[in-house]
Amino acid sequence: MENKCENLSLYIIDELPEHEKEPFERHLKTCIHCQSEIDSLQATWQMLSYDVEETDVPESLKAEVMDFIFIENETPLQAQEVSNNKQSFLERLKLILTIQFSPLSIGVTAVLVIGLIGLLWINLHLRDTITALENKAGSPTKIVKSFNLKGQDLAGLANGNAYLLKEGSDTSLVVKLNNMPKTNADEVYQVWLLKNGNRQNAGTLKPDQNGNGLITYRLPKDHSFDEIGITLEPNPDNTQPQGQKVMGTS
């Protein structure tokens, strides 16, 4: 308590550090001694201001003070406003738009814009489709190459043909097989395209009850092959042949 009371004078002359002010004010609420002293000591401190000789004020001072307040100190404020205006160009644009367009018209505009974009997109898409159709119409399917396929081993009686078709820029392979032995359960015939000893899967098929089967395979661009081989696979989706070869180009 004693320590706190010592701070009374410092508090009165406003020399108490910020962090000590609040604790002292709390102390003041409870300390009768400080309460009884503060008013008269504060008045004494303020009384010191009377120790002044009154001086005549220069006539020109009033204009200088008023100019200082209303001219010199207005300028930075205005400059600040200008820079604010620059900074908030987008906000002003937004404001202008807000003033010019009601929420309803903004909604209507948005719908129209979205509709327009939609129409444009459909139009472009349609044009692509038409171009594609025209291409097709303009470039009839041609047989580039044909292969004879002969059965062997368990499919000794089977035969077939394969055609390499060119349709515009697309190349596809059509394989037609006859007299194929029936397959059991998971068993499938798988077509392989051979090039330099590498095998490329070209699809699987199951023959119908008469032993006929057909498969088409769209070749990847610039893909070429030398031979066609067909294996009987125990299950589909093999990337490399597991079963025995039953047919091939002769």
């Binding site: 201001s49 001086t55 005549d56 004020v57 009033k62 003070v65």
Partner: peptide, 12 residues
């Protein structure tokens, strides 16, 4: 306020 107090403020 200026007219009322400038003399005091100036002297001070």
């Amino acid at each position: 306020l200026y007219d009322r107090y400038v003399k005091l403020i100036y002297s001070f």
